[in-house]
Design a protein around this nucleic acid. Structure first.
Length: 947
RNA sequence: GCGCGGGUGGUGAAAUGGUAGACACGCCUGCCUUAGGAGCAGGUGCCGUAAAGGCAUGGAGGUUCAAGUCCUCUCCCGCGCACCA
């Protein structure tokens, strides 16, 4: 037998498989189907990287396994071929995107084939081909006709010096990628898809998919459903009113001003009332020029201008509050206006401090002790209690008085119960004197009431404490004697602010300390200064206040979403043209379906001019109106490439259909996708949009399911060997080609799968790759041991354990452990003199999904004529795994003291007897009372002895 | 800040509550040789010369005969979102 030469065998079998059409999904099969899909690649000029290899190897293993298990597998491949890089490349080199893209596809195809992927190439699709984008355009029209595509003005990134629209990724950090000039926002008429109509479905249906929890969370997060209240505030002296949205209506009595987004339409409507118009307009001008980035990340500092002469009425207090415009309020969320409650909202607090606006507390904090011995005990009775918390400052040093309670292990400020007939203030001063002896104390600030739920260890009960809290300064150190009773309970210590942080054990006292700095509390609590709502919890108040607003006809509960409608217009060449025509008489006219596709013209200067390049194509732009036949012009923008990738998984079911995007029959046969695999990095939007398309199709009756991807998994990123991301600029990129050349595709596949758990981020390692290579060499050598008189029984247990483990692991994508179990099997087989043909064949089948070429070669080497990949997956036989002897571990008081080998089936009593007899065990149990023995079948004996 | 993941040998990593470190890389010792990116045999968590034993899964508690795994708290790291009222 010859040496293992990956080069000759890999090419040979790749060609053979292709000629045999081995991986073509069978439309007529009666076997159950499985649709295994990769997130289809963008054919970049850099070619395949190791992340692609990881992705495609994983789904290839899975597909091969499923085929052997008797499924009719569809595992297609295609190209997400439109996009900006090809256009940029064209701008730089003059190569037409169509040319470079197809060159890249050729390159990708060759690389993928050299990996031995088992894709069905007969279904290959290319989103930049007219046969494909014809249906992308059809989808646009479908949405348009159903009121789900509409046009409105929207901001684009605009570079004044290049006179061009920039994609978001070209406008990083607010400067133009090319000329480094400032990017500004410019309004253009653009197309949107109404994805917000489906916001609730997009959240609700997440419960039906088997996806990673982080990805589900990301979808939820992106949609950002928020439940609150919208209500109107009338503007004094006008007939206008301001609608505000809030999730914290319980804080409404603490509203001290209102803020509108600078672009809010009311600002113009109220212009006659505004006294400082010049200042206001100047501010609006400034914010208009600001990019999205400056308004958010770069500009953390909040700014705003008061609308002098404008006041709005708080419907609850009937009192007027001033109105501001400020760019921390977003124009496109909620109503574009907020009620500001600085005492209970961080952003309002910041703004109020900067502009010196009043801060009114209306929520008293409620703290529940969650840790330590004072942890609140949910199921035990609760006693109400009233007492003060007093923060006492030293008369000369920057220190505060703390009480250390030795028996309870507490650290607190000074506290004391309020007795009948005493005010909280009186109580505070009285307690200071009684407990510390200090005589000259002055209450400087009242910090309000702090509520707390905790367990009172000395009294052995739960308490719900209500504590008026004071900040007191001592005038001097004059001090009377303190009673022995007080000093025995606790010890007084002077502490700095830093020391207090760790000293205070009670949550409520920590909160008191926080209130000393800032009267800001953003959690739920108990209402105060809120007239008839006083004493309610935040939760109760939200309900009651919403009801009240509704009754008064001023407002109602409202749900808002962060999700915005999907802007699909791109002022670019290399994309699918939007199939709309503008006629002076008929206006906006949809291109009739029979006229699709609207072809991308070739007579185009695709360099960016500032407008869509299509505008300057003679053959494209001028057209006759489909309705009235008068001269008209085409929409010159193209579609976001996310549109192309929102429906491609349907096309794979029926890739050559010229009449429909896919026939109902083929969709029903293949969809939904059973396993979808791709990187986690940029999938939030893709998944959102694809799910939106699916939901639209369902609603319009084209399909009968809600979610396109039943199961989703992500492969973790492959980092460079140095632990950093692979990048050309760092020069740490590994090209899969060189690895395949050197070690072979089988070794590369095995190595990447063995590197660690699929979903983890992993660093490439060029040293350890010899492990998988050696493993394959050993399998190769094993062939020499195959013999007619090989002893099957000797290795059956090992073999069948492996059958089970490999199958189970592939199903849960645990490829690293599947490979290790194959290594264990090979280690076992190497110990045998001779191996039966049956055993070896089973090994080859188990290994075939991972190392398709080598196993195919050896499969034929031992005399088979069919492909190993058409073989049946072996059936696990549990009875063959029963070994004659098992090792039992023996623990004494939980510690391992010895092991013993017993014949399988030994009774528990016998195991206990044998175990106790062992000298190593006798040593530990002799002369002690045996309290308990526990036997875990075939594994372990646990003996519990007394002292 | 919010939401997700993670912390286990020299390294990548394994472990339905049941002998922690499978498997692999590396390293050490020896063998063999047509000196290779070889192959074979043995060893390799830490402390302890060895044995006995002890200590070990970021840290602290808890539940249990038994905890990497379950519970509570805490520290650290990575990722995603982030002025969404």
């Amino acid at each position: 037998m010859e040496k293992y030469d990956h080069k000759s065998i890999e090419k040979k079998w790749q060609t053979a498989w292709e000629q045999a059409g081995m991986y073509v999904a069978d439309e007529n099969s009666t076997k159950p189907k499985k649709y295994v899909l990769d997130m289809f690649p963008y054919p970049s000029g850099d070619g395949l990287h190791l992340g692609h290899v990881e992705n495609y190897t994983a789904t290839c293993i899975y597909s091969r396994y499923l085929r052997m298990k008797g499924f009719n597998v569809m595992h297609p491949i295609g190209w997400d071929a439109f996009g900006l890089p090809a256009e940029n490349y064209a701008i730089k080199t003059g190569t037409h995107p169509d040319v470079s893209t197809h060159q890249n596809i050729k390159n990708f195809t060759a690389q993928m084939k050299s990996l031995g992927v088992s894709s069905d190439w007969t279904r290959e699709i290319d989103t930049s081909s007219p046969e494909y984008y014809r249906w992308t355009q059809w989808f646009f029209l479908l949405l348009y006709k159903n009121g789900l595509a509409y046009k409105k003005k929207a901001k684009v990134n605009w570079c004044e010096s290049c006179k061009t629209v920039l994609a978001n990724e070209q406008a990083e950090n607010g400067v133009c990628e090319r000329c480094k000039n400032e990017v500004i926002q410019k309004d253009l008429e653009q197309w949107f898809f109404k994805i917000t109509d489906y916001a609730d479905d997009l959240i609700d249906d997440l419960s039906s998919v088997d996806w990673p929890s982080s990805t589900i969370a990301a979808q939820r997060n992106w949609i950002g459903r928020s439940e609150g209240v919208e209500f109107n505030m009338s503007v004094v002296g006008t007939s206008e009113s301001i609608a505000v949205y809030t999730t914290r209506i319980d804080t409404v009595f603490g509203m001290t001003y209102v803020v509108l987004a600078p672009e809010h339409p009311l600002v113009q409507k109220l212009s006659s009332s505004i006294k400082n118009t010049a200042e206001v307009n100047a501010y609006i001008d400034v914010t208009k020029k600001k990019t999205e980035l400056e308004r958010t990340e770069l500009a953390k500092e909040k700014t705003g201008v008061k609308l002098e002469g404008v006041e709005a009425i708080n419907p609850f207090t009937k009192q007027p509050v001033p109105v501001f415009i400020g760019d921390y309020v977003l124009g496109n969320y909620g109503t574009g206006a907020v009620m500001a409650v600085p005492a209970h909202d961080e952003r309002d607090f910041e703004f109020a401090k900067k502009y010196n606006l009043p801060i009114v507390q209306v929520i008293e904090p409620v703290l529940t002790q969650m840790t330590g011995s004072a942890k609140f005990r949910e199921d035990e009775p609760v006693q109400q209690s009233h007492g003060v918390i007093v923060i006492i400052k030293h008369w000369s040093e920057d220190k505060y008085l703390g009480l250390r309670w030795p028996t309870a292990g507490w650290g607190t400020f000074l506290t004391g119960g309020i007795d009948e007939g005493f005010t909280p203030e009186q109580t505070a001063l009285k307690e200071i004197h009684e407990e510390t002896g200090y005589k000259k104390a002055v209450i400087v600030r009242n910090l309000g009431v702090i509520h707390s739920k905790y367990y009172h260890e000395p009294k052995k009960l739960n308490r719900f404490g209500h504590a008026p809290t004071f900040y007191v300064e001592l005038q001097n150190g004059e001090q009377d004697e303190v009673s022995a009773e007080e000093t025995s309970k606790h010890e007084a210590v002077w502490l700095t602010r830093g020391e207090l942080d760790t000293f205070l054990t009670a949550e409520s006292h920590q909160q008191a300390l926080k209130l000393l700095d800032a009267t800001l509390y953003t959690d739920s609590g108990i209402l105060t200064c809120s007239s008839e709502f006083d004493g309610l919890t935040s939760e109760e108040a939200r309900e009651k206040m919403a009801v009240w607003l509704e009754k008064e006809g001023l407002g109602a509960k409202k749900v808002n979403y962060r999700l915005r409608d999907w802007l699909v217009s791109r002022q670019r060449y290399w994309g699918a043209p939007i199939p709309i025509i503008y006629c002076d008489d008929c206006g906006e006219v949809a291109v009739p379906e029979e006229n699709l596709p609207v072809l991308l013209p070739t007579d185009v200067d695709f360099r960016p001019t500032g407008e869509s390049p299509l505008k300057y194509s003679k053959t494209f732009n001028d057209v006759v109106c489909p309705k009235c036949s008068k001269p008209a012009r085409r929409e010159a923008d193209t579609m976001d490439t996310f549109v192309c990738s929102s429906w491609y998984y349907f096309r794979f079911a029926d890739p050559h259909n010229a009449k429909e995007f896919a026939s109902r029959e083929t969709i029903e046969k293949w969809l939904p996708v059973d396993m979808y695999m791709g990187g986690a990095e940029h999938t939030v939007l893709h998944l959102m949009y694809a799910r939106f398309f699916t939901k639209v199709l369902k609603k319009l009756g084209y399909i009968n399911f809600d979610e396109p991807f039943a199961k989703l998994r992500h492969q973790g990123m492959i980092l460079a060997e140095d632990g950093r991301k692979m990048s050309k600029s760092l020069g740490n990129v590994i090209n899969p080609n060189t690895i395949i050349e050197e070690f072979g595709a089988d070794t590369l596949r095995l190595h990447e799968m063995f590197l660690g758990p699929l979903e983890d981020m992993k660093a490439w390692n060029s040293t350890t790759i010899v492990g998988p290579r050696r493993f394959l060499e050993r399998v190769w050598k094993l062939t020499e041991k195959v013999s007619a008189d090989g002893d099957e029984k000797a290795t059956d247990a090992s073999l069948h354990k492996t059958i089970k483990k490999v199958g189970d692991d592939i199903e849960k994508f645990g490829f690293n452990t599947a490979i290790s179990s194959l290594m264990i099997l090979v280690n076992d087989l190497e110990k045998a003199e001779k191996i039966s043909r049956n055993t070896f064949e089973t090994l080859l089948i188990l290994l075939a999904p991972f190392a398709p070429h080598l196993t195919e070669e050896l499969w034929h080497e031992i005399g088979n004529t069919e492909s190993v990949h058409l073989a049946q997956w072996p059936i696990y036989d549990a009875s063959k795994c029963v070994e004659s002897e098992t090792t039992v571990a023996i623990q004494v008081n939980g510690k391992l003291r010895d092991t013993m080998v017993v014949t399988t089936g030994t009774s528990d009593d016998e195991i206990i007897r044998l175990g106790l007899d062992l000298p190593n065990i006798q040593k530990w149990v002799l002369g002690k009372e045996i309290k308990k023995t526990i036997v875990v079948k075939g594994k372990l004996l646990s003996i519990v002895v007394g002292e």
